[in-house]
Design a protein around this nucleic acid. Structure first.
Lengths: 214, 214, 214, 214
DNA sequence: TATGAATGAGGGTTCATTCAT
DNA sequence: AATGAATGAACCCTCATTCAT
């Protein structure tokens, strides 16, 4: 180990020195998010991240043990931000409205943070096996959110009550992840088309509600 | 001749020599499927693929122009096999039965050839913009299959007629890909659970049919 | 910045760091001169050059884009030094004296910098068609020098006036290059013998002057 | 060593089998001459030589120990052919006419056999140090030819008698080599221009004869 | 005899990481 | 604290050489 261990993210940036330091840490993380998002783990290079952050490559090793460590921190952050973004804003919405809102906000979030969809897809270029720990619970918060909404909807008689909510929540989360990622893929074979987003919403709305007739 | 550029896959393996050669080509392709599936394009290395195939690294360059060419061939092969597997067996089925059958066969296929989903998921914008041509149409056959079934169902009055079929076909294909891939991911966060497969089927069956009342 | 493409040779080496860096650049160039001189472009290896310079192979790529770039710079440098050395010192000399002086200085230069002739001899059509630009004008300055002297001699009535000076200048330059290179070849079949140098001088002195009788 | 040592060039091709074999050996040598001439020793590849000869790469190793051995044989042959070509045709010519004829024939020979000039120039891409033995005497026959002509000319009172002939012979040979090689270099900086050939001839004719006045 | 499939050492190059400044 | 020069392992790829057929 080095004589100067990794500097943690300070809880409070007291001195101006610490502030400047924290600002640099942030810019490195932002640059890393962009680079990993564009090029995957293997494709991104420390040099490019440092350039993009406007610092020297050596500085990265003062904040992060190595490339993998930096990657782990980036992943944790982006998941955290994503989940935070998806939390329903309005407690009075119907379940389906809440799901639709969550879905659309997720899509928007991924447009701005392209690393997330790759992560959710377990993109091989990310080499997620290397980080392991972080990936364990990276989607559970999402499912919990969705499952909570479904439960509320079932309790309110708004949604079908047949099944347990876990499996449908999984499916809905999967769809949200998938179509959130389209914006990022830029692959004409996987278009990021409002009409398709609407089709997903329609499918959800068709599939979930208790049959209106009953 | 000596500096044979690339040896093609012989249509008929006449001599034992050609047979052995074709066997080696196969083992390279299989190893490549595994390595690309596990590590993505950038993460996989020629050396590891050769090791896994039990051949020298140089041999790869007799069959494939370079790493990208090898990847293209792997991609084409696995897509072709997959689509072939999904083609509906029975022309007399209802549309929803056909979709369910296709879905379940796709899942089974991926259980036996676990590398497809990893390749499908491998984001082409990352390292593979160059492959281009191959990726263009790698999922279109799948969508065409699904769209054909939907159209038949609409024509037969079995399915809702509101929308055009393209968008729902996209969504259904996406779901098929996703859940076909679970077997491979072996990630507890994305379980390969019969109950969830059933939930997907249920969602499809709920969302698609013309309302029974009508 | 981090991913600095190529570090240029600094005009003034201010800091000790820059000085040390420049010293390394020099040692790489010197090693490259030696290796290219001994083995030609294709035969020389980056690894051997780095070893000889006492640096790691990676360092070469901080100073030079690639092997070809390194070769170009070596070529330019050595040509520049050589031409600089040959410029006539004394404007009052007769043309033949000036040519003889230039010739003998060129020979001496090559004795001290024995790698020039090897580089000059390195056939550009073989591996170096790509270098192109640099090789275009690598000998023209030499010919211009010689042609200038011949013109002066013709104007002064010292030399035959029959021909244009371009062709004889070419021949004289060729001879200067050849015999300048002998010191380096160390091939007993091509001796570096003062008697032969004198023979060249004698041949020039015989061939060029206006016939004394006329 | 191999169980089947190198097959020598048979003195007499008795059987049809031996004839065919000898024909193949020849075609390999011809292809090698062309390839080494175009690309130097390091740049030429066994594969390309075999292709050009219309045989498999493995066959080369039945006739030649390895790449270096093939190269040595090629060099010996080309030198032998060159000297054979330069031998004066007409014993009654004047010395200067004989030299001019030899010079012009040498130039023509090199146009057809481009390896020679590279060899004469000791082109670094040829890596002549590797073969050694052959290069020892590769130019002596040429000098002997020229020196013989000069001696005859001196004896006949046609040429200046001051010097011994060795040194001028060296210079003339050098010039012959140089300008023979121009055709091959295809470098605009070293033009293969009849006017320059004529200039060389003129220089020889000016420099060598006994002053006509005397 | 002749082939060409197969090998693997070694080439040029990149880049994560270290460390003197 | 911050830099960026320097390292060297590991990448992709080429090609001289061998050997089963």
């Amino acid at each position: 180990m080095s004589a100067t261990p990794i500097r943690p993210s300070p809880d409070a940036s007291d001195t101006p020195r610490q502030e400047a330091s924290e600002r640099r840490r942030r810019s490195i993380l932002d640059a890393a998010r962009a680079c990993f998002g564009e090029s995957g783990f293997a494709g991104a290079t420390i040099g490019r991240i440092a350039d993009r952050a406007g610092v020297s490559n050596g500085l990265l090793y003062r904040f992060f043990r190595n490339k993998e460590h930096l990657f782990e921190v980036v992943l944790e952050e982006v998941i955290r931000d994503w989940v935070r973004e998806m939390v329903p804003r309005d407690a009075n919405q119907s379940a389906t409205d809440a799901l639709e809102g969550m879905f659309r906000r997720s899509v928007e979030f991924c447009r701005a943070h392209p690393l997330l969809p790759a992560l959710l897809r377990d993109d091989p270029t990310l080499q997620l096996a290397r980080v392991g720990s972080a990936s364990r619970d990276r989607v559970q918060p999402h499912r919990d959110l969705v499952a909570g909404i479904l439960s509320r909807g079932v309790a309110a008689g708004e949604l079908r009550a047949e099944l347990d909510v876990a499996a449908p929540a999984d499916v809905l989360c999967q769809l949200q992840s998938d179509y959130s990622g389209r914006a990022y893929r830029r692959d004409p074979a996987f278009p990021d088309d409002p009409a398709i987003i609407d089709a997903v919403v329609a499918l959800m709305r068709n599939a979930l509600p208790a049959s209106s007739a009953s």
